[in-house]
Computed example of a mutant assay.
Amino acid sequence: MRKQSLIAIGVTMVILLTGCQNQQLVQSSILKQYEEALQIEVSRTKVSNQISDMEQADQRDFDKIVLNGKKSNLNVKNLIEKCLQNIEERKALLSQEKQALTQANDVVKNMNANIGNLGNTDMKTQASSVLSLYERRYAVYQNMRTIYERALDQEKGLYDKLAEPNCKLVDIDNLVFERNNNFNQVAELMDQFNELTEQFNKEYKELENVIGKNKK
């Protein structure tokens, strides 16, 4: 009888130990997925900064076009060509940014299975909160990118119109308004994106702390 009891206890200990190891594997897998996604996003940040710099350059050139092209566009043809080139370069950078964020999101989006396997309720709640923030952030980015692409197309139409021989600034008032309206929407969505990024960083740090305490 004692032998049977010892064997039973031994089996129980193996199960408990394996369960603990499995939990640590799940926790490590969640952090690993996030770290992989955040590493991918490093390239996204660099591209976003390039786009921002090019936006500022485009605005400076547009202001020069308005200043020097009041009577005729002959004085600003080179600037118009420069702005059109700027748009094409921003489109290419936007495509790189989209690729990086989509790749990062693909790493994270299947995390629900791992979160569901967490045994610690507080940890599961925190992990779910972090994932929700990441998903909301990505949704805002998708909306922002769509509007940005539309704004770039409108901006190209604006410069194409300016390049026409008999075009005057008064002829592009509506195009300027539409272009500015779209970029204002982009700016608002960028603020939301940055706010969600800050929230994500805070909640992710808290998730790391919760998992770290659980390992002690």
Rank of each mutant, 00 (worst) to 15 (best):
D160W: 04
I87A: 02
E81K: 12
M190N: 15
E178C: 08
E36G: 03
G69S: 05
L101M: 03
V11M: 15
N182H: 09
A187E: 15
D153L: 05
Q39N: 14
E198R: 11
Q39R: 13
Q142K: 14
T12M: 14
N180V: 10
I211Y: 03
Q50H: 06
I30Y: 02
Q21D: 07
P165I: 08
L79A: 00
E88V: 08
S72I: 03
D61H: 09
N105K: 10
D53E: 15
N75H: 05
A104Y: 01
C20M: 15
Q24V: 06
N201Y: 12
M54E: 13
N112V: 13
D160N: 08
D171T: 02
I15W: 10
G19Q: 03
L17W: 09
V176L: 05
G69T: 04
S72P: 02
V107T: 03
Q24K: 09
V11Q: 11
I115R: 02
R145H: 14
Q33R: 09
N112G: 11
K202A: 14
E203I: 06
S28C: 07
E203C: 05
L17G: 06
L6P: 00
R136M: 12
N114T: 10
L31Q: 04
A139M: 11
K46Q: 11
L79N: 00
S132E: 13
F183S: 01
A151G: 10
G212N: 14
N73Y: 03
L175V: 02
K3V: 12
S72E: 04
I147R: 01
R44L: 08
Q126R: 05
K215R: 14
E36F: 13
E88C: 05
K161P: 00
D58G: 10
Q103R: 08
N174G: 08
